[in-house]
Design a protein around this nucleic acid. Structure first.
Length: 283
DNA sequence: GCGCCATGTATAG
DNA sequence: TATACCTGGCGCA
């Protein structure tokens, strides 16, 4: 689940559920026990996200730095009548009483990173990230400077968090399809306007992801209803052009979608729609 | 119930 | 490049 939109939602949900509240913090699993004890009984100020990183801010300059990795999850429940016992390996549990008989609680599981840090350390992490299409102050020029100097394929560059923060394997495949760009094309062969088109598309797609809580990338003319085709039924939910559709016909041209590993992950693309040096995007 | 794979990253070799 | 991390959904007995 976790690409940038997931972390943005999570930060918003945590802020809505806990901001300003004095929280109980614990580590039922034990691996975050010492740190949880430090936070226990202090006030949670807010949560924020940058790229795929989550920062939960407490008073006294305590910040919990979370990275969910591939399989992590942070389940936030607001306004529950009671708090159930933890299930599974809960690294961090936050609980706050939000009203008479009303509780918020959140359980963190499976994260690759859960560290108690300071605001200064958070700023270091932020400084190491490229611009995040979900943040209004993001400067795509910083990403462009990296891309247009690089001989690496654009499909790899989009996954590098120090180039663009928050893009994962789904958004990489989908934005390159929508912009009709060959994933193997070296970054330095892209014109600035083409890169900025990728960026603007990511801004819209990822904002949709935050709003909907899933990744939908097909244009209105390619929805199941518009095309009279069955909706996607796997666990990803969202309607997409190429991600995990290898061997199925391209929704635009009918050519079979291809797959091949790139940067250690499965890349998906249409060899017909995404021919090299083809320069016009789908409008 | 079991094995596999997955929207990610760090680290070892 | 391989593997560790360690959860959850799916296909398949």
């Amino acid at each position: 689940m976790p690409e940038g939109h997931t972390l943005r939602r999570l930060a918003d949900d945590l802020t809505a559920a806990f901001a300003g509240a004095t929280v109980s913090a614990s580590s039922p699993q034990g691996r975050f026990g010492t740190e949880a004890a430090v936070l226990d009984g202090t006030r949670l100020l807010a949560a924020d996200a940058a790229g795929k990183h989550l920062f939960v801010e407490f008073e006294h300059d305590h910040v919990v730095h979370v990275h969910l990795g591939l399989i992590g999850g942070f389940a936030v429940t607001e306004g529950a009548a009671e708090v159930p016992p933890p299930v599974g390996q809960v690294r961090l549990r936050l609980v706050a009483r939000t009203g008479p008989g009303r509780w918020s609680y959140a359980d963190l599981r499976g994260a690759t990173r859960c560290d108690l840090v300071t605001g200064a350390r958070r700023d270091e992490v932020l400084a190491g990230l490229g611009p995040d299409p979900l943040r209004p102050d993001a400067d795509p020029t910083r990403a462009w400077e990296r891309v247009h100097r690089s001989a690496r394929p654009i499909g790899e560059l989009l996954m590098q968090q120090d180039v663009i923060a928050g893009v994962g394997n789904v958004y990489r495949a989908e934005v390159l399809f929508r912009q009709r760009i060959d994933p193997f094309r070296p970054g330095r062969t892209l014109r600035r306007s083409r890169f900025l088109a990728i960026w603007e598309d990511l801004v819209g797609l990822m904002a949709d992801g935050v709003r909907l809580g899933r990744i939908d990338t097909v244009r209105p003319e390619h929805t199941p209803e518009a095309m009279g085709r069955p909706a996607r039924e796997d666990d990803h939910g969202g309607e997409v052009y190429v991600y995990r559709r290898s061997g199925q016909p391209c929704l635009v041209c009918g050519t079979l979608v291809r797959t091949s590993p790139m940067a250690g992950r499965n890349l998906f693309w249409c060899g017909q729609c995404q021919r090299r040096f083809r320069s016009r995007a789908v409008q």
